[in-house]
């Protein structure tokens, strides 16, 4: 299976919300935006594991407040098995999918290596929903500065939640929250800059 297929497989089942100011980057556990398949594969590199063991390790290291469902684990493992990236290393008496122990194959190791070496798309969010809102407000003579103020407040609300979680969490929590905090901060810089340029923008977009 290709990397894209892993990613698309997940996206189709969990489509991202339309609003571009809510998904991935801004959820405390942004790491869940990654490919679960590759992560589980990576966890198998240290040795064969059962599905429940994979889930437990994933939740411990990456899941935090959004643990994996067992169904996600087993459907992902079935896919990896079908694509030859893992193999069944043993089955304990009693049957059922939870009794299978999985091991990574050489093709699986290669796939993990390729995934790790591929940079993530920076996604600059051009033409964001917020930009459209601001322009529409200007076009309809509404309070564009007010929209920016309200958005700043909403961003800060999320930043307070993350800051609090960071303060109480371990190093992993801190790093994950920092990632989200820096992205929110970048948005806020844009908000400030846009607020400072509203007059120019109004002149540019209004007839």
């Amino acid at each position: 299976m290709t990397i894209a297929r892993h990613l698309h497989g997940r996206t189709a089942r969990h489509p991202r919300p339309h609003s571009m100011y809510t998904p991935r980057v801004y959820t405390p556990c942004s790491v869940l935006g990654m490919s679960i398949g590759h992560t589980l594969l990576g966890l198998l590199e240290s040795g064969p594991r059962h599905g429940y063991d994979l889930k437990r390790t994933f939740d411990e290291k990456f899941g935090h407040d959004r643990p994996l469902h067992y169904g996600q684990v087993y459907s992902t493992m079935s896919r990896l098995l079908r694509d030859g990236l893992v193999e069944v290393d043993g089955i304990e008496p009693g049957g059922g999918p939870e009794r299978k122990r999985y091991a990574i194959t050489q093709a699986g190791v290669t796939d993990v290596e390729r995934w790790l070496a591929t940079p993530e798309k920076p996604e600059p969010y051009l033409q964001s929903t917020l930009y459209i809102k601001v322009v529409l407000a200007l076009l309809t003579r509404r309070d564009a500065a007010g929209i920016l103020d309200t958005q700043r407040s909403e961003h800060l609300r999320m930043m307070r939640v993350l800051t609090d979680r960071k303060r109480k969490g371990d190093l992993a929590d801190q790093l994950i929250c920092d990632h989200a905090l820096f992205h929110l901060e970048a948005d806020l810089r844009w908000l400030e800059l846009t607020a400072a340029r509203l007059d120019k923008l109004a002149a540019a977009v209004t007839p």
């Binding site: 800060l156 905090l181 901060e185």
Partner: peptide, 8 residues
């Protein structure tokens, strides 16, 4: 903003 996030 990261400093303001310590406020109520």
């Amino acid at each position: 903003p990261r400093v303001a996030a310590y406020s109520d």
